[in-house]
Amino acid sequence: MSIPALLGTFMGLIFLTALTVGVHYGVDLGGKGNLIAAMVIATMKASLVLAFFMHLVFDKRYNFMIFATSVLGVVLFISIAFTDVSQYEPMVQQRQADLAKAAEK
């Protein structure tokens, strides 16, 4: 990789880091806005690292497929488990409230 590409990637990463910290301190996007902003910036940083530092743009497609499959696996795992847990969460909260009430006595 050429020196400008290396340094350019690095400067991009530093800029995005400054941006994400800046948004954290300076801006209240309300609701989940800040979380979404932070994740979008993190994903941009991750893409830079993957594409250039890890040369995925120049690499064999198969290596990218491995990475993408793993990410897909993680996303499936998290989203399915999350969906289920949030479905039964009321049953958990009710019990925890009752236990807390009993412990007060």
Partner: peptide, 21 residues
């Protein structure tokens, strides 16, 4: 070797994936 290391990185993602979950 490169394919091997990418496979290893793939499993690392799943490994951390549990904690992210």
């Amino acid at each position: 070797g490169k394919l091997g290391i990418w496979l290893f990185l793939g499993q690392e993602l799943l490994f951390f994936g549990g904690l992210f979950c």
